[in-house]
Design a binder for these strands. Structure first.
Length: 817
RNA sequence: GCCGGGAUGGUGGAACUGGUAGACACAAGGGACUUAAAAUCCCUCGGCAGCAAUGCUGUACGGGUUCGACUCCCGUUCCCGGUACCA
């Protein structure tokens, strides 16, 4: 056995041992309390990057700590294996996507194993396997039965020469990425899932997510975008049709002086028919970006349509304008405009000389409506029978009036749209639907699931090869038995990643999507860790899907919870030279090189030490070496175990034991509150430094030293498990470090007889005194006065006030005598 | 614009609930060992003044509260993330 720290050897040895001992498996037959630690599963791109390494080292530290704490830990991993990159790679390499995907998985699996991550590999999943996606097909047919899945026309990016739909990222500057042809918008029938039916619950349950970063909760809240108000029907002069709008300020209804509609609104389109100038304007509007960056600087423009709307209460006629800032995609594509009480309407009215009618005034005082809009709540004026009401009451009264007169109603509006799950792509789960001439859209019955995706097809970049695959396409209708065709679209890959956390609880289950008992044991996820880029879409869909599974009766609220993730940690990005690592910038760092040079433990240590988990991590090669040096320093502590010349020194022993137990306290705190591993590792470094400086003299000195090194080895295990195990073995510890119990704090060791107290005069630090730990204020003051360097500040002064903060400081407030 | 987060040495970052600012590390400089290099070890390391003891000053900026403020309050600037011109 070498006496040097040989990372490669040690890591190979322990990985083998752990594997043989099966210590990483989560047990389904166990009384211990369970803990579910989940990291966001990777897309099998072929190579692990630093972001993965960081994510998985964080998760592994948590999982290992919990195991050492005696929990039965579920720490699974798998592959989010469907998606576009596989198709692109398939085109490039002329190999089917399945082949590429599976070989990438093999490669990345071995990279993960090389890092020594403690996954339960028996639960590994790959979403592209029929055993997995059959269950989301099954779920989809349940949703069809419930009316929660439906078909509707939706706009897609279409490339005519390629005869295919393009994802947004395949549209580069408005042209197709492959053939440079301008992309056109086309309406296709697509499948949707009614996430909007769950908008209210998804919003309300955000309050339960106390273990989530507020930032993410806020982002989801904005995304759902609830606003309450009223829907109001305006008449259209000379027409039987109505112009319906949504407003959050029904109290300002009497102040409407014009209406504004989107360019795509039917009324605008109709007006343009015999108004060429307007037609040009509409065309212009249709081409502007709706992205916020452009919008910020965009000039607000409008044009009158010539139509007039009839005010539902006063019957007054107001002009209908087209405005470039009204969006067809939100609400009804039309708004009422109240320039007196809305800034944007105010600016618009000013620009085009439209009337401004004040109908609200501040509760106290007046408002100069000529100079600015009054957007606060207030008291109604110029509003006929509603005069004198406060805004809140007026909202109610006006909604009531509208309801009674059939001109509108109370209404809640969400920004959230239904989830479009159809993708006109090959490498995804088939949508389990059969199109029959007579029966329409028929769900594939359970006994015919899964609908297996043929894996031998070769994508070309044009239409999905499923279109050409006759044996897939042609089938018979499950209802009437006549010839029919399969749905050729596949699911959005968010469909797979929305429920994988629950599948892990019974990953090999062939009877059901999940097992209620297993959910009861493991769900919900105690700690979920991943990138903040998933703050909205993935995390929202997963929350939604969890509720769908619950409502499909797969588990109850008690068994699986209403929310899938109790605690969420969003880790920061890994940067190099201040920017995100990316191949195109050429600033990537290959984890493989670090592992080869220094070992997996050094790679793990550095990623955890260099920054707090939620912050960005600036990669620093020199810092990596620093981590390696630390491990070598700890290693050398072994050489001094038997050094025991000289006599026992009680004070020194007490001192070192205090450091040991204070460190246990600090490191434990990091695991229990917020995962500040950078600080925990710093504390371990301090302990190592203290042990290095300590001379283990005599029996008790030697024992204290050993206690320290053992505690250090044990606490290092979640971070650098191979190293810790080897150290523990060489120390002759009974259990290998990764399953050893977490060290307990010996409170007695923390107690000090004498403490150092900082002394302040007027709040400025002037010195320190050593004093009995339970000394009172008078004693402390006396000690301070006995110290010349402190007392010189008190000389000739009158003591006004003395503040003693026990264990910390003494502050003396004085004034000249 | 709005919502969220942030600003601490040359750098990454510490500082519990208002109680010794700069832990731990990186970089830099100096020294020891060595034929030499690597490795390792020791010392210095916010700024200003000083040989030193020490003093003053310092947590983006301006105020305030307090015996005491990186921490709390008011205002300002800048940076990052999110976003919806959302009626």
């Amino acid at each position: 056995m070498s006496d040097r720290y040989e990372a490669q050897q040690i890591e190979a040895k322990w990985q083998q041992k752990w594997d043989a001992a099966g210590i990483d498996a989560a047990r389904d037959d166990d009384d211990r309390e369970s803990y579910y630690c989940l990291v966001m599963f990777p897309y099998p791109s072929g190579n692990l990057h630093m972001g993965h390494v960081r994510n998985y080292c964080l998760g592994d530290a948590v999982a290992r700590y919990k195991r050492m704490r005696g929990f039965n830990v579920l720490h699974p991993i798998g592959w989010d294996a469907f998606g576009l990159p596989a198709e692109n790679a398939a085109i490039k390499h002329h190999r089917p996507p399945a082949e590429w995907t599976y070989s990438n998985i093999d490669q990345m699996r071995s990279q993960l194993k090389r890092l020594g991550l403690s996954y339960d590999w028996s639960r590994e999943i790959a979403t592209c396997r029929p055993e997995y996606y059959r269950w989301e097909q099954w779920m989809f047919t349940r949703l069809m039965e419930k009316g929660l899945a439906y078909q509707a026309e939706a706009e897609v990016n279409w490339c005519d020469p390629c005869h295919t739909v393009l994802a947004n990222e395949q549209v580069v500057d408005g042209v197709c990425w492959r053939c440079d042809t301008p992309v056109i918008k086309k309406n296709l029938k697509q499948w949707f899932i009614r996430i909007t039916d769950y908008a209210e619950e998804l919003l309300a349950d955000l309050d339960k997510l106390t273990g989530w970063p507020e930032k993410v909760v806020g982002m989801q809240r904005n995304w759902i975008g609830k606003s309450s108000g009223a829907e109001v029907s305006f008449g259209i002069e000379g027409s039987d049709e109505t112009l319906d709008i949504f407003t959050t300020r029904p109290d300002t209804l009497m102040g409407v002086t014009y209406m504004a509609v989107a360019a795509a609104h039917p009324l605008a389109q109709k007006a343009a028919e015999n108004n060429p100038e307007l037609a040009v304007f509409l065309d212009e509007c249709s081409r502007i970006s709706t992205k916020e960056a452009d919008v910020e600087t965009m000039e607000k423009k409008g044009m009158a349509t010539g139509f007039h709307a009839i005010h539902p209460i006063s019957g007054e006629l107001v002009p209908v304008w087209v405005a470039n800032f009204v969006l067809m995609g939100y609400g009804t594509g039309a708004v009422m405009s109240v320039p007196a009480h809305d800034e944007r309407d105010f600016d618009f009215a000013r620009k085009y000389g439209l009337r401004i009618q004040q109908v609200i005034k501040p509760a106290d005082g007046d408002w100069d409506i000529e100079s600015a809009a009054f957007t606060e709540a207030g008291i109604l004026i110029n509003s006929a029978q509603f005069d004198g009401l406060a805004s809140a009451d007026a909202k109610q009264a006006i909604i009531e009036w509208l309801s009674e007169n059939d001109k509108g109603s109370e209404r809640v509006q969400y920004r959230l749209r239904d989830w479009l799950v159809s993708r006109q792509r090959y490498w995804g789960s088939p949508i389990p639907v059969i199109h029959c001439q007579d029966c329409g859209e028929v769900a594939v019955p359970d006994d015919q699931l899964p609908v297996i995706l043929p894996t031998h097809l070769q994508p070309t970049g044009g239409a999905s090869p499923l279109n050409e695959c006759d044996e897939f396409r042609h089938t018979t209708c499950p209802k009437c038995g006549k010839a029919a065709e399969r749905e050729l679209d596949t699911f959005d890959t968010f469909m797979e990643s929305s429920w994988y956390m629950n599948r892990y609880t019974s990953a090999r289950n062939e009877q059901a999507m999940v097992d209620a008992e297993a959910m009861n044991r493991w769900a919900a996820v105690d700690q979920y860790i991943g990138g903040v880029e998933h703050a909205v879409l993935h995390l929202l869909y997963a929350r939604f899907y969890h509720k769908l599974m619950r409502d499909a009766g797969l588990f109850t609220s008690e068994q699986g919870g209403d929310e899938p993730f109790k605690n969420l940690l969003t880790q920061g990005m890994v940067l190099k030279d201040g920017t995100k690592m990316s191949k195109s910038k050429g600033n990537t760092v290959d984890p493989k090189a670090i592992i080869e040079n220094f070992g997996a433990d050094t790679a793990r240590l550095f990623t955890l030490f260099a920054a707090p988990p939620e912050k960005e991590l600036e990669w620093n090669d020199a810092g990596v070496e620093g981590g390696f040096r630390f491990l070598k320093r700890v290693w050398r502590l072994l050489e001094r175990l038997d050094l025991c010349e000289g006599e026992d020194e009680a004070a020194a022993v007490k001192q070192v034991r205090r450091t040991i137990h204070a460190t246990i306290q600090r490191v434990t705190h990091a695991f229990e509150h917020g995962f500040a591993f950078n600080v925990a590792i710093a504390a371990l470094m301090e302990l190592a430094n203290a042990l290095q400086d300590y001379k283990p003299a005599g029996t008790s000195g030697k024992a204290a030293y050993r206690e320290g090194v053992e505690a250090l080895a044990t606490m290092l295990a979640p971070f650098v498990p191979h190293f810790a195990c080897e150290l523990a073995e060489r120390l002759g510890m009974a259990e290998i470090a990764v399953v050893a119990g977490w060290p307990e704090v010996d409170e007695a060791a923390l107690v000090q007889d004498e403490i150092t107290l900082a002394v302040q005069i007027q709040g400025k630090r002037r010195g320190e005194i050593i004093i009995a730990k339970d000394a009172g204020q008078d004693e402390a003051l006396a000690a301070a006065q006995a110290d010349d360097s402190i007392n010189k500040w008190l000389d000739g002064m009158q003591i006004v006030k003395v503040i003693l903060v026990p264990g910390r400081l003494l502050n003396v407030v004085v004034k000249p005598q």
